[in-house]
């Protein structure tokens, strides 16, 4: 097993841990700005997390340890995934051949615990949300894995750090129709995993239409803070996955590289998500699987184009 370490590798993890909630703040600000409102301050997600951390959790008597373990395992899985996620050409803290499979399954582990914690409450609404989440993620997981396999094939490296080091070599020489397909597929997975608009509406008030929100209804206090922080981290690292493909930063100066990467990874996904949420409504639940199968088809096509 090859593991390499360099002093700058700490920066992707540190920036993810500290800047992830800011992403939500920027998205909400963009949405408010586009619809002509003033919007909450950018730091609002931090205030919310701080408020939740000071509260105490309330547990229903019907729940077991699974319900309490859910938020912890979810956050732990995402933090671990953040360790193996590089930032452009800055390698990740830990990297080894095949770590992209671990990455996909860390996301799946977090999701699995969210689902069984939701089922543990015995509430029918939560069961419904859990069933939808399981269905949609069963369709989005192959799309993500196949897309990453296509990238691995393209770049000739099977660790995330290696892949993104080749991709962000300072030019778009590697761009091919297949990589465009990979980008679209990963973007759909990004929207699904983060429960954003064409798939799920994070601001909905009706339990019947919720997917992710309904599963965490019973969590409160620090548990909810963990869940919200985990969601922000998930969005940050999946955003890295996307940005690494399209942003070939390579200035030669390390601190400049890092600053550009951080600015782009804050603004890129935030602007994309903000624009989408401003301009379109969510899809009908029956149409969502079609979107996810389409993402899968994009990945398969990309892989086929790369395998020739």
């Amino acid at each position: 097993m090859m593991t390499y370490w360099s002093h700058q590798s700490i920066s992707p993890v540190i920036s993810a841990i500290f800047l992830a909630p800011l992403l939500f703040g920027v998205i909400n600000w963009i949405k408010a700005f586009l619809s002509g409102r003033r919007g909450a301050p950018w730091l609002q997600p931090y205030f919310d997390l701080w408020k939740l951390m000071r509260k105490s959790a309330v547990y229903s008597r019907t729940t077991t340890w699974i319900f309490r373990a859910g938020p912890l395992v979810g956050l732990g899985a995402i933090l671990t995934a953040a360790m193996i996620m590089p930032m452009g050409n800055i390698p990740a803290l830990v990297s080894f051949p095949g770590d992209f499979v671990l990455f996909a399954y860390l996301l799946a582990l977090g999701r699995f615990f969210t689902i069984i914690a939701a089922l543990d409450t015995g509430s029918s609404f939560q069961g419904m949300g859990a069933s939808r989440e399981a269905y949609f993620s069963a369709l989005s997981e192959p799309a993500l894995l196949l897309a990453l396999t296509a990238v691995a094939r393209r770049t000739g490296s099977n660790s995330l750090s290696g892949m993104y080091e080749v991709l962000s070599s300072g030019s778009w020489a590697l761009v091919s129709p297949a990589m465009v397909l990979v980008f679209i597929a990963i973007f759909i997975v990004f929207l699904t995993e983060n429960a954003r608009i064409p798939v799920d509406d994070p601001t909905t008030h009706l339990e019947l239409t919720m997917i992710h929100e309904v599963m965490v209804l019973d969590h409160g206090g620090p548990d909810l803070a963990f869940i919200n922080y985990g969601a922000a981290l998930k969005m940050w690292i999946l955003g890295q996955l996307l940005i690494g493909i399209v942003n070939p930063v390579h200035t030669g100066i390390m601190w400049l590289n890092q600053t550009i990467s951080i600015v782009v990874s804050l603004s890129g996904p935030a602007i994309a998500v903000g624009l989408i949420e401003f301009s379109m409504a969510r899809l009908r639940l029956k149409r969502v699987p079609q979107l996810l199968v389409a993402a899968g088809i994009f990945s398969v096509l990309a892989l086929i184009m790369e395998l020739r």
């Binding site: 699987p289 079609q290 199968v293 389409a294 899968g296 088809i297 086929i304």
Partner: peptide
């Protein structure tokens, strides 16, 4: 959705 899967198999 099954049509899409069958299409993938056909591909």
């Amino acid at each position: 959705v099954p049509s899409l899967f069958i299409g993938l198999a056909g591909l």
